[in-house]
Amino acid sequence: RKEMTAACTPRRRIINLTSVLSLQEEINEQGHEVLREMLHNHSFVGCVNPQWALAQHQTKLYLLNTTKLSEELFYQILIYDFANFGVLRLSEPAPLFDLAMLALDSPESGWTEEDGPKEGLAEYIVEFLKKKAEMLADYFSLEIDEEGNLIGLPLLIDNYVPPLEGLPIFILRLATEVNWDEEKECFESLSKECAMFYSIRKQYISEESTLSGQQSEVPGSIPNSWKWTVEHIVYKALRSHILPPKHFTEDGNILQLANLPDLYKVFERC
């Protein structure tokens, strides 16, 4: 597991931080080997919608929660590849102030007048994250320049770009939802926020969305749709870069829909 690298990086740093090793061990302890084997050997059937997909393993048909699986995938990559990410360069710098204002204007932020003026909160978020810029760049390849612009994001899987519609809320939550006081809790909560931002979430995906850094293989055609990215990038990574937690067998994120021999018997009677 320590050699797990989802995106190509030129050289690998050895990380011996106790906090990170502890988080890696927790993933191992909570892992479910049968689910790992199923995901490793599954045959992708198709997307139901951005949140759900169908896959077959041996004779069984499964309904998989793409949102939760991708979130767990990105969390584990962030923990196992800690401080070893490439950088996704933004085509132009994104001012943190503008991103924070967009987030505060969104109902998702939960902002009320009692929280104070949005401009003041946005300025605080910019200054707060600028103070964390060195650590964010060093460990997470999340790059913020001296003017308070976001200029780079971590490359977690080759050819995958997170849904940038979720970027404003991500920046807001970096400042408000991460435990910045304790090292282990900081790395864990920061990785979880980043994983949620990178995950496939239906509120940020339309039929026209593209999450891939590449064009489709047909010359002159439109960019790959999110469905292509889910199948050929995300579920491909799920084959080798995730140890599913045991609770996925109990919380409805992986559901067995049918045993195909039983279905064949039904059709034979028709």
Rank of each mutant, 00 (worst) to 15 (best):
Q51Y: 10
V230E: 05
N28L: 13
D251S: 04
Y139R: 07
I27M: 12
G116K: 02
E193M: 05
F140P: 10
Q51K: 07
F97R: 02
L190K: 00
Q256C: 06
A103N: 00
E193P: 00
D262L: 13
E33I: 13
N16R: 12
F248I: 08
A100T: 02
Q51I: 13
L172A: 07
R13Q: 12
F82V: 01
F128M: 05
A55W: 13
F85H: 12
F128Y: 07
H57I: 05
V234T: 13
I233V: 11
Q58M: 10
Q256R: 11
R11H: 12
R269C: 14
G152E: 12
L39I: 11
Q30C: 05
E250S: 09
G220F: 11
M4Q: 05
K68G: 09
P50K: 09
R239G: 14
N16C: 14
L155T: 06
Y80V: 03
V34K: 10
N41D: 04
K227R: 09
K184Q: 08
I200D: 11
L255Q: 02
F97P: 01
W111M: 15
L142N: 01
K184Y: 12
I205L: 09
V161N: 05
L39Q: 11
R239F: 14
H247K: 07
L96V: 13
E146F: 12
M101I: 09
L17N: 03
H32R: 07
L104D: 00
N253D: 05
V34Y: 14
L150P: 01
T5M: 13
R173W: 00
E92Q: 04
P168F: 01
Y62C: 15
F170D: 00
H241R: 08
P163F: 03
L260T: 06
L54Y: 09
G252L: 10
L39T: 12
I14A: 05
D158R: 06
D251H: 09
L155F: 07
E25W: 15
L104N: 00
E92N: 04
L54T: 06
R201W: 05
E183R: 03
N259H: 09
E37W: 15
L99H: 03
D115M: 15
D251W: 15
P162W: 00
A7I: 12
P10Y: 12
E147K: 03
L21M: 03
G46F: 01
T210Q: 04
Q56W: 03
E114Y: 15
V234P: 00
R89S: 12
A237M: 08
T229H: 10
A6T: 12
R239P: 07
M38N: 06
Y204N: 07
K236I: 13
P162C: 01
E146V: 08
I79C: 06
T67H: 09
E25V: 14
I77K: 06
E3W: 15
Y198G: 00
T59K: 06
I200K: 02
E33M: 13
I242H: 14
M101K: 04
E188K: 06
E72M: 07
P93W: 01
C270Y: 15
L54W: 05
F140Q: 02
K60D: 13
N84L: 14
L90A: 01
Y160K: 00
L88E: 05
V161P: 07
I222C: 06
H42A: 06
E165Y: 02
A6D: 11
Q215S: 10
H40V: 11
L164V: 05
Q214R: 10
Q76V: 02
P10Q: 06
P219S: 09
V126L: 03
P219H: 08
A103E: 00
V87K: 05
S199L: 01
C194M: 12
S43C: 09
L69H: 09
S43L: 10
S141W: 02
P154F: 00
F85S: 11
M196Y: 12
L90G: 00
N49A: 07
E177L: 13
V218F: 04
N259S: 07
T59D: 08
E250V: 13
K118A: 15
H57L: 08
L211D: 04
E127I: 14
S199E: 01
Y198W: 11
G46V: 03
H232S: 11
D181C: 04
S225M: 12
R173F: 01
R1T: 09
K246E: 12
L54M: 07
I233H: 12
L150D: 00
G148T: 04
L153E: 00
S189N: 04
G152T: 03
Q30A: 13
P50F: 04
M4R: 06
D115H: 15
N84S: 08
E123R: 02
M196T: 04
E182D: 05
G213Q: 05
E26G: 07
W228C: 10
C194T: 06
K60S: 11
L121T: 01
L23E: 15
N16T: 07
K192D: 09
T9M: 10
G148I: 01
P223L: 04
E146W: 14
F85M: 14
N159M: 06
H42Y: 13
G213K: 06
Q215G: 10
T249C: 11
P245R: 05
L129V: 14
P261H: 12
E146N: 04
L153Y: 01
I222R: 07
M38E: 11
M101F: 12
V230M: 07
H57C: 09
D262N: 10
N84D: 11
I169Q: 10
E92D: 05
V48D: 11
I222Y: 09
G31D: 09
C186D: 02
L35H: 06
A6N: 13
P117V: 15
D98K: 04
T59L: 10
Y75S: 12
F44M: 10
Q24K: 04
Y198F: 07
S191N: 04
K68D: 13
I169F: 09
L54P: 00
L211C: 09
A100R: 00
I14R: 10
N84M: 13
V234C: 14
S240K: 06
L61P: 02
N49Q: 11
Q203L: 13
F44C: 04
T210I: 05
W52N: 06
I27P: 15
A103S: 14
Y139L: 06
G166P: 13
A7L: 12
L69S: 01
E72W: 12
Y198Q: 02
N179I: 08
A55T: 08
M4G: 11
T66S: 09
S189H: 06
T112M: 15
E147P: 05
L39W: 15
V87S: 06
L164E: 03
T59G: 03
M38W: 15
E183P: 02
C8P: 11
D251Q: 09
P117E: 10
I151R: 03
G166F: 12
T5R: 12
F44Y: 12
E193V: 13
L167C: 02
S19D: 13
W226F: 06
L150E: 01
M135D: 03
Y124R: 01
K118D: 10
L211Y: 05
K60F: 12
T9W: 13
D98A: 05
P107Q: 07
S106T: 04
E143F: 12
I205D: 07
I205G: 06
R12Q: 12
Y235K: 10
E217A: 10
F128E: 02
K236Y: 14
E37D: 09
Q76F: 02
K184T: 04
I254G: 03
N149I: 08
T67P: 12
D158A: 08
L155G: 03
